[in-house]
């Protein structure tokens, strides 16, 4: 168990180093960082002095080591566009993205599992057919279209919900939350649906397929033959086995909810890191892009680690401590 965690941590570190290298490459080699920092009228001597001061004349491995060292302390330099430390800018925007991702991710997971189990158990019911057909929409419509449709219906026509922004936010220490005000909550609804719909349908279809698979296994037949109630068979024996593969997919989906909230944040002008990233690209704000890259990689690595540990907790076969075999 400990060895397993250590191995995974080592792998995670390697992944992060690889991402850091790409991110460093972005920073160092796309354009001239000095050119991006100083004004038009800086002399060549001034430029050279700055280059020397920033260590850009050092050997590349030394520079990379320094980049990693800084990244570990959360320093990614100064945003070209905003002239503020990148870490501050991201810290300011992160709560908005995380709140959005948390709400839509939780909803997708809970509803996805519930609907998946329902449609698997009532396979021939009309409601199941309806849900399955409706889920095709969620799988096939692109996110931006869903967002625009929702805005049109609920913001423009019905005027029930705001079309953009986070509404009023409350500062809790360094965290700005929209969950404590009515306008904040209202503002969350449409972006959450837009962001989570695809994941919901995906998880639902996955749960349904897995559940149907599990319901055909021998141990489910045997559980029935033992005279257990339907509830015990479905929700104790079948569901636990169903959720095993779902954990992996759900973990990755939650990662991508955070990472790829870009489209939803653009459509709803949601002041999160996704929107920050898009504007950074438009203005070639390399430090912000580099930091975003590292941040997203970190989120994926952490989620993967959690998924692996969850597997460990759920599946006893992975915990194989001295298998007691033999007759």
């Amino acid at each position: 168990m400990i060895a397993f965690i250590l191995r995974r941590l080592l792998q995670s570190t390697l992944v992060m180093l690889a991402v850091a290298l790409v991110s460093f490459g972005l920073f160092r080699y796309i354009g001239d960082p000095i050119h991006n920092m100083v004004g038009q009228e800086a002399t060549l001597a001034e430029r050279e002095a700055l280059r020397e001061r920033l260590g850009l004349n050092d050997a590349v491995p030394v520079q990379f080591a320094r980049f990693v060292g800084n990244a570990l302390r959360g320093e990614f330099g100064i945003s070209y566009r905003m002239q503020r430390p990148v870490a501050d800018v991201i810290a300011e925007r992160l709560p908005a993205t995380l709140e959005l991702a948390l709400i839509s991710g939780t909803a997708a997971l809970v509803l996805g599992i519930a609907l998946g189990v329902y449609t698997a158990l009532r396979r021939e019911g009309w409601l199941s057919h309806l849900i399955m057909s409706a889920s095709l929409i969620g799988v096939s419509l692109p996110t931006f279209l869903i967002g625009i449709l929702l805005i049109y219906v609920f913001a423009v026509e019905l005027k029930m919900l705001p079309a953009f922004g986070r509404g009023e936010v409350v500062q809790l220490g360094g965290w700005s939350t929209g969950l404590l005000t009515a306008s904040g909550v209202k503002s969350l609804i449409l972006p959450s649906i837009t962001l989570g719909l695809y994941q919901l349908t995906l998880i639902m279809r996955l749960v349904r397929a897995e559940m149907l698979e599990v319901l055909r296994t021998d141990y489910i037949k045997f559980a029935r033959a033992r005279g257990l109630s339907d509830r015990a068979v479905h929700f104790r024996h079948a569901l636990k086995n169903t959720l095993l593969p779902v954990i992996t997919i759900a973990g990755l989906q939650i990662g991508s909810i955070i990472a790829f909230a870009i489209i939803t944040e653009t459509v709803f002008q949601w002041p999160g890191v996704g929107l920050l990233f898009i504007t950074a690209i438009q203005f070639v704000d390399i430090p912000v892009m580099a930091a975003y890259l590292v941040l997203i990689a970190l989120i994926f690595v952490v989620i993967n680690l959690i998924v692996d540990l969850l597997y460990f907790a759920v599946d006893p076969r992975l915990r194989a401590q001295r298998p007691g075999r033999g007759h």
Partner: peptide
């Protein structure tokens, strides 16, 4: 089922819930 009539299946490897 289970109380008055019980059943044993062919494959003991798959008859028990692994979890």
């Amino acid at each position: 089922r289970g109380r008055r009539i019980a059943m044993i299946f062919q494959d003991p490897l798959t008859s028990l819930n692994p979890l």
